[in-house]
């Protein structure tokens, strides 16, 4: 948080309030008006008493790219689940792993978080360390045999970053600059 404390009402963010109210409604399994009002009050209290620094993300969601991101993500999850299952059931004596350093191209905490989280959800890879200052993430990759496998893994992470940036459209200029 910045040295000068920001006023309390600045910590109220509409998406957060709506999301918390929705969670409250789903928890009660009772979609009535009174319940929505009480959920909104609880969300207001949570946001006031546990303030979070506002995320500086100027999201511009592109629906087509977002759908592609999700479809591709599900596909990756299924495929790599099967791969990890195969490696698990096969011989495990000479199983080799790798710790790979990936430098993300976009200087944004939001993109870093989303990419690391999605890569972690895909079986066979795991974020071990992350550095905010240089936007570097260290991934542990499962069942990588040689240097070529390391490079393939790195390219997979960068492709995931590209898809995330295309879907949310924050730093698309950085991306084109880096790829050209």
């Amino acid at each position: 948080m910045s040295p000068q404390r920001m006023p309390r009402h600045r910590t109220l963010q509409w998406p957060m309030l709506v999301w918390l109210t929705l969670v409250w409604l789903m928890l009660w399994r009772d979609f009535t008006l009174g319940n929505a009002v009480s959920g909104f009050l609880v969300a207001l209290g949570v946001c006031l008493f546990f303030p979070l620094p506002p995320l500086r993300m100027h999201l511009r969601v592109r629906p087509v790219a977002l759908v592609w991101l999700l479809v591709r993500f599900l596909w990756d999850v299924v495929v790599s689940s099967l791969l990890v299952a195969k490696a698990t059931l096969g011989p495990t004596k000479n199983l080799r792993n790798a710790v790979v350093e990936v430098n993300l191209k976009t200087p944004s905490d939001f993109v870093l978080t989303v990419v690391a989280e999605m890569i972690c959800l895909i079986p066979g890879s795991l974020a071990v360390e992350a550095r905010r200052s240089t936007h570097t993430v260290f991934f542990h990759a499962f069942d990588v045999r040689d240097e070529a496998g390391v490079e393939i893994f790195r390219q997979r992470v960068l492709a995931q970053e590209r898809r995330v940036v295309r879907a949310f459209g924050t730093h698309i200029a950085h991306l084109e600059e880096a790829s050209s």
Partner: peptide, 19 residues
């Protein structure tokens, strides 16, 4: 149970939690 070291085991462990 089978995999030899902790980080490999964690890869196996993320599967039931996700898919």
């Amino acid at each position: 149970l089978r995999l030899p070291d902790l980080l490999s085991r964690m890869h196996a462990a993320t599967k039931p939690q996700v898919l």
